[in-house]
Amino acid sequence: METIEKITGETGRKYKCQDIVKALEANIVGSQLAAGVELPCTAELASRYRVSEKTVHRALQHLADRKLIRRVRGSGSFVRGNMGLPPHSRIGFFYFESLNVEIPSFNNILCQNSRLLLKQILEDAGLAVEFHSEQMPNVENCPLLGMELSRFDYIIAEAGYRLVAEQVLRNFPGEVILFGDDEFVFGPWHQVFFDYRPGMRKALEHLMKMGFRKALVVGVPTLSTSQHRYTALCEMADQCGFGSANLAFPVPEEYFFHLPVLCGREYGKLFLKEFKCDTAIFSLSDHLTVGVLDVLYEHGLKPGRDVQLISYDNFLSNVPEFKERFFCNAVTHPLSCEFRAIVKLMSEIHLAPNPDFYRSIVVPAQEFIVRTDGPRAR
Protein backbone atom coordinates (compact mmCIF):
# COMPACT_ATOMS: atom_id res chain seq x y z
CA MET A 1 0.00 0.00 0.00
CA GLU A 2 1.63 3.24 -1.15
CA THR A 3 0.68 5.39 1.83
CA ILE A 4 2.14 2.85 4.26
CA GLU A 5 5.37 2.62 2.29
CA LYS A 6 5.82 6.39 2.29
CA ILE A 7 5.76 6.66 6.06
CA THR A 8 8.46 4.01 6.44
CA GLY A 9 10.95 5.72 4.19
CA GLU A 10 13.67 6.34 6.80
CA THR A 11 16.10 3.51 6.26
CA GLY A 12 18.10 3.65 9.50
CA ARG A 13 15.47 4.56 12.04
CA LYS A 14 14.40 2.23 14.84
CA TYR A 15 10.63 2.44 15.15
CA LYS A 16 8.68 2.03 18.36
CA CYS A 17 5.07 1.17 19.06
CA GLN A 18 3.99 4.81 19.38
CA ASP A 19 5.72 5.70 16.11
CA ILE A 20 3.58 3.15 14.30
CA VAL A 21 0.42 4.38 16.04
CA LYS A 22 1.14 8.03 15.12
CA ALA A 23 2.03 7.26 11.52
CA LEU A 24 -1.05 5.12 10.86
CA GLU A 25 -3.31 7.52 12.74
CA ALA A 26 -2.06 10.45 10.65
CA ASN A 27 -2.91 8.59 7.45
CA ILE A 28 -6.36 7.57 8.71
CA VAL A 29 -7.38 10.96 10.07
CA GLY A 30 -5.83 12.67 7.07
CA SER A 31 -8.00 10.53 4.78
CA GLN A 32 -5.07 8.92 2.98
CA LEU A 33 -6.42 5.54 4.08
CA ALA A 34 -10.10 5.25 3.16
CA ALA A 35 -12.58 3.75 5.56
CA GLY A 36 -13.04 0.03 5.00
CA VAL A 37 -9.53 -0.42 3.59
CA GLU A 38 -7.62 -3.40 4.96
CA LEU A 39 -4.24 -2.65 6.53
CA PRO A 40 -1.22 -4.79 5.59
CA CYS A 41 -0.89 -7.97 7.65
CA THR A 42 1.04 -7.97 10.93
CA ALA A 43 4.08 -9.66 9.41
CA GLU A 44 4.27 -7.13 6.58
CA LEU A 45 4.00 -4.15 8.94
CA ALA A 46 6.65 -5.68 11.22
CA SER A 47 9.00 -6.04 8.26
CA ARG A 48 8.40 -2.51 7.00
CA TYR A 49 8.91 -0.92 10.41
CA ARG A 50 11.69 -3.32 11.41
CA VAL A 51 9.99 -4.27 14.68
CA SER A 52 8.60 -7.48 16.14
CA GLU A 53 5.07 -8.65 15.35
CA LYS A 54 4.32 -8.27 19.06
CA THR A 55 5.06 -4.53 18.77
CA VAL A 56 2.78 -4.25 15.72
CA HIS A 57 0.00 -6.06 17.62
CA ARG A 58 0.27 -3.51 20.44
CA ALA A 59 0.16 -0.61 17.97
CA LEU A 60 -2.91 -2.00 16.20
CA GLN A 61 -4.66 -2.57 19.50
CA HIS A 62 -4.08 1.09 20.42
CA LEU A 63 -5.74 2.12 17.16
CA ALA A 64 -8.61 -0.31 17.77
CA ASP A 65 -9.15 1.06 21.30
CA ARG A 66 -9.45 4.53 19.80
CA LYS A 67 -12.05 3.27 17.27
CA LEU A 68 -9.82 4.06 14.29
CA ILE A 69 -9.60 0.47 13.06
CA ARG A 70 -11.55 -2.75 13.48
CA ARG A 71 -9.64 -5.99 14.06
CA VAL A 72 -11.28 -9.19 12.86
CA ARG A 73 -9.80 -12.47 14.04
CA GLY A 74 -8.60 -14.49 11.07
CA SER A 75 -9.35 -11.68 8.58
CA GLY A 76 -7.20 -8.65 9.40
CA SER A 77 -7.47 -5.02 10.49
CA PHE A 78 -9.72 -2.53 8.71
CA VAL A 79 -9.93 1.25 8.80
CA ARG A 80 -13.09 2.58 10.43
CA GLY A 81 -14.85 5.87 9.68
CA ASN A 82 -12.72 8.90 8.92
CA MET A 83 -12.99 12.42 7.53
CA GLY A 84 -12.63 11.20 3.96
CA LEU A 85 -16.19 9.91 3.66
CA PRO A 86 -19.47 11.76 3.15
CA PRO A 87 -21.08 12.33 6.58
CA HIS A 88 -24.75 11.39 7.02
CA SER A 89 -25.10 10.23 3.43
CA ARG A 90 -28.25 8.34 2.51
CA ILE A 91 -27.37 5.21 0.55
CA GLY A 92 -29.71 2.90 -1.33
CA PHE A 93 -28.19 -0.49 -2.10
CA PHE A 94 -29.93 -2.59 -4.78
CA TYR A 95 -29.04 -6.22 -5.41
CA PHE A 96 -30.37 -9.58 -6.61
CA GLU A 97 -31.45 -12.00 -3.90
CA SER A 98 -31.51 -15.19 -5.95
CA LEU A 99 -28.83 -16.07 -8.48
CA ASN A 100 -29.09 -19.82 -8.91
CA VAL A 101 -32.26 -21.91 -8.70
CA GLU A 102 -30.29 -25.17 -8.83
CA ILE A 103 -28.33 -24.55 -5.60
CA PRO A 104 -30.53 -22.64 -3.09
CA SER A 105 -27.92 -22.88 -0.32
CA PHE A 106 -25.50 -21.00 -2.57
CA ASN A 107 -27.85 -18.02 -2.60
CA ASN A 108 -27.80 -17.95 1.19
CA ILE A 109 -24.00 -17.90 1.29
CA LEU A 110 -23.54 -15.37 -1.48
CA CYS A 111 -26.49 -13.04 -0.89
CA GLN A 112 -27.05 -13.01 2.85
CA ASN A 113 -23.52 -13.46 4.15
CA SER A 114 -21.97 -11.11 1.65
CA ARG A 115 -24.55 -8.39 2.34
CA LEU A 116 -23.82 -8.66 6.04
CA LEU A 117 -20.15 -8.19 5.21
CA LEU A 118 -20.94 -5.12 3.11
CA LYS A 119 -23.17 -3.72 5.87
CA GLN A 120 -20.31 -4.07 8.35
CA ILE A 121 -17.85 -2.40 5.98
CA LEU A 122 -20.21 0.53 5.37
CA GLU A 123 -20.95 0.89 9.08
CA ASP A 124 -17.22 0.89 9.79
CA ALA A 125 -17.06 3.83 7.40
CA GLY A 126 -19.74 5.61 9.44
CA LEU A 127 -22.39 5.16 6.74
CA ALA A 128 -25.98 3.95 6.97
CA VAL A 129 -27.47 1.96 4.11
CA GLU A 130 -30.97 0.93 3.03
CA PHE A 131 -31.06 -2.47 1.31
CA HIS A 132 -33.47 -3.39 -1.48
CA SER A 133 -33.44 -6.83 -3.11
CA GLU A 134 -35.35 -8.72 -5.76
CA GLN A 135 -35.19 -12.09 -7.43
CA MET A 136 -34.03 -11.00 -10.88
CA PRO A 137 -33.96 -7.66 -12.71
CA ASN A 138 -37.19 -7.12 -14.62
CA VAL A 139 -39.71 -4.36 -15.19
CA GLU A 140 -42.42 -5.96 -13.07
CA ASN A 141 -40.59 -5.95 -9.74
CA CYS A 142 -37.67 -3.55 -10.22
CA PRO A 143 -37.63 -1.28 -7.13
CA LEU A 144 -35.65 1.38 -8.97
CA LEU A 145 -38.64 1.97 -11.28
CA GLY A 146 -41.31 2.37 -8.60
CA MET A 147 -39.48 4.09 -5.76
CA GLU A 148 -38.96 7.71 -4.84
CA LEU A 149 -35.20 7.91 -5.14
CA SER A 150 -34.75 11.54 -4.12
CA ARG A 151 -34.22 10.46 -0.52
CA PHE A 152 -30.87 8.91 -1.49
CA ASP A 153 -27.58 10.67 -2.04
CA TYR A 154 -25.95 7.52 -3.41
CA ILE A 155 -27.33 4.54 -5.29
CA ILE A 156 -25.15 1.44 -5.25
CA ALA A 157 -26.52 -1.19 -7.62
CA GLU A 158 -25.48 -4.45 -9.20
CA ALA A 159 -24.57 -3.80 -12.81
CA GLY A 160 -27.47 -5.92 -14.09
CA TYR A 161 -29.90 -3.14 -13.17
CA ARG A 162 -28.79 -1.33 -16.32
CA LEU A 163 -30.83 -3.88 -18.26
CA VAL A 164 -34.18 -2.57 -16.98
CA ALA A 165 -33.53 0.72 -15.20
CA GLU A 166 -30.82 2.44 -17.22
CA GLN A 167 -32.82 5.62 -17.80
CA VAL A 168 -33.62 5.93 -14.09
CA LEU A 169 -29.94 5.55 -13.25
CA ARG A 170 -29.00 8.14 -15.87
CA ASN A 171 -31.52 10.65 -14.48
CA PHE A 172 -30.69 10.15 -10.80
CA PRO A 173 -29.38 13.51 -9.48
CA GLY A 174 -27.01 11.92 -6.95
CA GLU A 175 -24.08 9.58 -7.43
CA VAL A 176 -24.53 6.10 -8.92
CA ILE A 177 -22.02 3.29 -8.35
CA LEU A 178 -22.42 0.08 -10.35
CA PHE A 179 -20.57 -3.04 -9.24
CA GLY A 180 -20.08 -6.66 -10.20
CA ASP A 181 -19.68 -6.22 -13.95
CA ASP A 182 -17.05 -7.82 -16.16
CA GLU A 183 -16.15 -4.73 -18.13
CA PHE A 184 -16.40 -0.96 -18.00
CA VAL A 185 -19.66 0.38 -19.46
CA PHE A 186 -19.74 4.06 -20.36
CA GLY A 187 -22.44 6.13 -18.70
CA PRO A 188 -23.08 8.74 -15.98
CA TRP A 189 -22.06 6.40 -13.21
CA HIS A 190 -19.02 5.20 -11.31
CA GLN A 191 -18.03 1.53 -11.51
CA VAL A 192 -16.31 -1.28 -9.68
CA PHE A 193 -15.56 -4.12 -12.07
CA PHE A 194 -13.34 -7.17 -12.35
CA ASP A 195 -10.14 -8.04 -14.16
CA TYR A 196 -9.68 -11.82 -14.42
CA ARG A 197 -6.33 -11.78 -16.13
CA PRO A 198 -3.80 -11.92 -13.24
CA GLY A 199 -5.27 -15.07 -11.70
CA MET A 200 -5.88 -16.68 -15.08
CA ARG A 201 -2.25 -16.24 -16.03
CA LYS A 202 -1.16 -17.92 -12.78
CA ALA A 203 -3.55 -20.79 -13.53
CA LEU A 204 -2.23 -21.28 -17.06
CA GLU A 205 1.36 -21.18 -15.84
CA HIS A 206 0.41 -23.87 -13.31
CA LEU A 207 -0.98 -26.02 -16.13
CA MET A 208 2.23 -25.63 -18.13
CA LYS A 209 4.26 -26.57 -15.08
CA MET A 210 2.21 -29.77 -14.87
CA GLY A 211 2.88 -30.49 -18.55
CA PHE A 212 -0.50 -29.47 -19.99
CA ARG A 213 -0.67 -27.55 -23.26
CA LYS A 214 -4.36 -28.09 -24.03
CA ALA A 215 -7.47 -27.12 -22.09
CA LEU A 216 -11.22 -27.58 -22.51
CA VAL A 217 -12.90 -24.29 -21.57
CA VAL A 218 -16.29 -24.74 -19.88
CA GLY A 219 -18.75 -21.87 -20.18
CA VAL A 220 -22.13 -20.80 -21.55
CA PRO A 221 -21.23 -19.63 -25.08
CA THR A 222 -24.16 -17.20 -25.37
CA LEU A 223 -23.55 -15.56 -21.99
CA SER A 224 -21.62 -12.29 -22.06
CA THR A 225 -19.82 -13.13 -18.81
CA SER A 226 -18.46 -16.32 -20.33
CA GLN A 227 -17.35 -14.43 -23.42
CA HIS A 228 -15.55 -11.80 -21.34
CA ARG A 229 -13.76 -14.41 -19.26
CA TYR A 230 -12.88 -16.50 -22.31
CA THR A 231 -11.42 -13.44 -24.06
CA ALA A 232 -9.32 -12.67 -20.98
CA LEU A 233 -8.18 -16.30 -20.80
CA CYS A 234 -7.13 -16.26 -24.48
CA GLU A 235 -5.17 -13.04 -23.95
CA MET A 236 -3.29 -14.52 -21.01
CA ALA A 237 -2.72 -17.80 -22.86
CA ASP A 238 -0.95 -15.93 -25.66
CA GLN A 239 1.08 -13.80 -23.24
CA CYS A 240 2.36 -16.65 -21.08
CA GLY A 241 3.10 -19.04 -23.94
CA PHE A 242 0.24 -21.49 -23.42
CA GLY A 243 -1.34 -20.34 -26.70
CA SER A 244 -4.98 -19.38 -27.23
CA ALA A 245 -5.12 -21.90 -30.09
CA ASN A 246 -4.78 -24.62 -27.45
CA LEU A 247 -7.98 -23.51 -25.68
CA ALA A 248 -11.07 -25.39 -26.92
CA PHE A 249 -14.41 -23.67 -26.24
CA PRO A 250 -16.92 -25.96 -27.97
CA VAL A 251 -20.70 -25.80 -27.80
CA PRO A 252 -22.20 -29.08 -26.53
CA GLU A 253 -25.11 -30.57 -28.42
CA GLU A 254 -27.30 -29.51 -25.51
CA TYR A 255 -26.51 -26.68 -23.16
CA PHE A 256 -28.73 -24.89 -20.69
CA PHE A 257 -28.46 -21.12 -20.46
CA HIS A 258 -30.50 -20.78 -17.24
CA LEU A 259 -29.29 -24.03 -15.65
CA PRO A 260 -25.51 -23.83 -15.42
CA VAL A 261 -25.17 -27.05 -13.42
CA LEU A 262 -26.84 -29.00 -16.23
CA CYS A 263 -24.73 -27.08 -18.74
CA GLY A 264 -21.64 -28.18 -16.82
CA ARG A 265 -22.82 -31.79 -16.99
CA GLU A 266 -22.96 -31.56 -20.77
CA TYR A 267 -19.37 -30.34 -20.83
CA GLY A 268 -18.39 -33.19 -18.51
CA LYS A 269 -19.88 -35.68 -20.97
CA LEU A 270 -18.13 -33.92 -23.85
CA PHE A 271 -14.79 -34.15 -22.04
CA LEU A 272 -15.15 -37.90 -21.50
CA LYS A 273 -16.26 -38.45 -25.09
CA GLU A 274 -13.88 -36.28 -27.12
CA PHE A 275 -10.90 -35.23 -25.00
CA LYS A 276 -7.88 -37.10 -23.70
CA CYS A 277 -5.85 -37.22 -20.52
CA ASP A 278 -3.44 -34.60 -21.90
CA THR A 279 -6.24 -31.99 -21.75
CA ALA A 280 -7.04 -29.97 -18.62
CA ILE A 281 -10.44 -28.47 -17.82
CA PHE A 282 -10.84 -24.72 -17.18
CA SER A 283 -14.33 -23.82 -15.96
CA LEU A 284 -15.43 -20.18 -16.20
CA SER A 285 -17.85 -20.47 -13.25
CA ASP A 286 -18.06 -22.73 -10.23
CA HIS A 287 -21.76 -23.33 -10.99
CA LEU A 288 -20.63 -25.01 -14.19
CA THR A 289 -17.90 -26.80 -12.28
CA VAL A 290 -20.55 -28.53 -10.14
CA GLY A 291 -21.99 -30.18 -13.24
CA VAL A 292 -18.55 -31.19 -14.51
CA LEU A 293 -17.71 -32.70 -11.12
CA ASP A 294 -20.98 -34.66 -11.10
CA VAL A 295 -20.05 -36.42 -14.34
CA LEU A 296 -16.42 -37.00 -13.32
CA TYR A 297 -17.39 -38.56 -10.00
CA GLU A 298 -20.05 -40.72 -11.69
CA HIS A 299 -17.28 -42.21 -13.84
CA GLY A 300 -14.87 -42.75 -10.96
CA LEU A 301 -12.63 -39.81 -11.85
CA LYS A 302 -11.42 -37.46 -9.16
CA PRO A 303 -10.00 -33.96 -9.73
CA GLY A 304 -6.54 -33.75 -8.27
CA ARG A 305 -5.94 -37.42 -8.96
CA ASP A 306 -7.22 -38.20 -12.46
CA VAL A 307 -8.12 -34.83 -13.98
CA GLN A 308 -6.52 -31.38 -13.85
CA LEU A 309 -9.46 -29.06 -13.13
CA ILE A 310 -9.39 -25.29 -12.53
CA SER A 311 -12.50 -23.27 -11.72
CA TYR A 312 -13.15 -19.55 -11.75
CA ASP A 313 -14.82 -18.35 -8.51
CA ASN A 314 -14.47 -20.02 -5.16
CA PHE A 315 -17.90 -19.45 -3.63
CA LEU A 316 -19.14 -23.03 -3.53
CA SER A 317 -16.18 -24.16 -1.47
CA ASN A 318 -17.88 -22.23 1.36
CA VAL A 319 -21.21 -24.03 0.98
CA PRO A 320 -21.28 -26.92 3.53
CA GLU A 321 -22.56 -29.62 1.18
CA PHE A 322 -19.89 -28.82 -1.41
CA LYS A 323 -16.83 -28.41 0.79
CA GLU A 324 -15.65 -31.99 0.47
CA ARG A 325 -16.38 -32.58 -3.19
CA PHE A 326 -15.45 -29.13 -4.53
CA PHE A 327 -11.80 -30.08 -4.48
CA CYS A 328 -10.28 -28.21 -7.38
CA ASN A 329 -7.90 -25.35 -7.97
CA ALA A 330 -9.52 -21.93 -8.31
CA VAL A 331 -9.01 -18.40 -9.65
CA THR A 332 -10.86 -15.98 -7.44
CA HIS A 333 -11.10 -12.64 -5.67
CA PRO A 334 -12.51 -12.15 -2.16
CA LEU A 335 -15.87 -10.38 -2.02
CA SER A 336 -14.45 -8.15 0.69
CA CYS A 337 -12.11 -6.62 -1.93
CA GLU A 338 -15.08 -5.66 -4.07
CA PHE A 339 -17.00 -4.11 -1.18
CA ARG A 340 -14.02 -2.16 0.12
CA ALA A 341 -13.47 -0.87 -3.40
CA ILE A 342 -17.02 0.53 -3.27
CA VAL A 343 -16.21 2.37 -0.04
CA LYS A 344 -12.93 3.64 -1.49
CA LEU A 345 -14.79 4.90 -4.55
CA MET A 346 -17.28 6.78 -2.35
CA SER A 347 -14.40 8.37 -0.46
CA GLU A 348 -12.75 9.53 -3.70
CA ILE A 349 -16.04 10.96 -5.01
CA HIS A 350 -16.58 12.87 -1.79
CA LEU A 351 -13.03 14.26 -1.58
CA ALA A 352 -12.93 15.42 -5.22
CA PRO A 353 -16.49 15.90 -6.50
CA ASN A 354 -16.81 16.62 -10.20
CA PRO A 355 -20.19 16.26 -11.97
CA ASP A 356 -18.47 15.63 -15.31
CA PHE A 357 -15.95 13.08 -14.11
CA TYR A 358 -16.80 9.44 -13.41
CA ARG A 359 -14.44 7.15 -11.56
CA SER A 360 -13.81 3.44 -11.78
CA ILE A 361 -11.90 0.88 -9.75
CA VAL A 362 -10.75 -2.46 -11.11
CA VAL A 363 -10.76 -5.38 -8.66
CA PRO A 364 -8.19 -7.91 -9.89
CA ALA A 365 -8.99 -11.60 -9.59
CA GLN A 366 -5.37 -12.32 -8.77
CA GLU A 367 -5.72 -15.21 -6.33
CA PHE A 368 -4.90 -18.67 -7.61
CA ILE A 369 -5.77 -21.23 -4.97
CA VAL A 370 -3.89 -24.52 -5.40
CA ARG A 371 -5.59 -27.24 -3.41
CA THR A 372 -3.70 -29.98 -5.19
CA ASP A 373 -0.97 -30.17 -7.80
CA GLY A 374 -3.19 -32.66 -9.58
CA PRO A 375 -2.06 -35.14 -12.22
CA ARG A 376 0.59 -34.35 -14.77
CA ALA A 377 -0.06 -34.67 -18.48
CA ARG A 378 0.53 -38.23 -19.58
Rank of each mutant, 00 (worst) to 15 (best):
K16N: 11
N138I: 09
G268L: 05
N113D: 14
D65S: 08
K54V: 14
T8D: 03
A34C: 11
K119T: 10
F322R: 03
F172C: 08
F131A: 07
P137Y: 04
G199W: 03
Q32P: 02
E175A: 10
L127V: 04
V185P: 00
Q167W: 02
D313E: 15
Y267E: 04
D124T: 03
L284R: 01
K6Q: 11
E44K: 11
M210S: 12
L335G: 10
M208Q: 14
R58W: 00
I369F: 13
S47V: 00
Q167I: 06
L296N: 06
M346D: 03
G374F: 09
A64Y: 00
R70F: 01
L262R: 13
H258G: 07
P87A: 10
D286G: 12
L301C: 10
F322L: 14
G92K: 01
N82Q: 03
L33R: 00
E166V: 06
F339L: 10
T11D: 06
K22C: 08
N141F: 13
L45K: 00
I156Y: 02
P87V: 10
F257Y: 14
V307N: 04
E148D: 15
D356P: 04
W189Q: 00
V185T: 10
P320C: 12
G243T: 07
K119I: 08
Y196H: 10
N100C: 14
L117R: 04
R371M: 13
A203S: 12
E235N: 14
L345H: 01
V79I: 13
E140T: 13
F93T: 06
G374Y: 06
R66E: 04
F282H: 09
F271L: 09
L68I: 02
P40H: 03
Q366N: 15
M136W: 06
S347F: 03
H228T: 08
L309A: 09
C111W: 01
R50V: 09
E274A: 13
S89D: 05
M147T: 13
L99P: 00
S285P: 03
N171H: 15
P188I: 08
F249D: 05
G81I: 02
E166N: 11
N107I: 11
G76L: 05
F131T: 07
R359M: 13
C328Y: 05
E97Y: 10
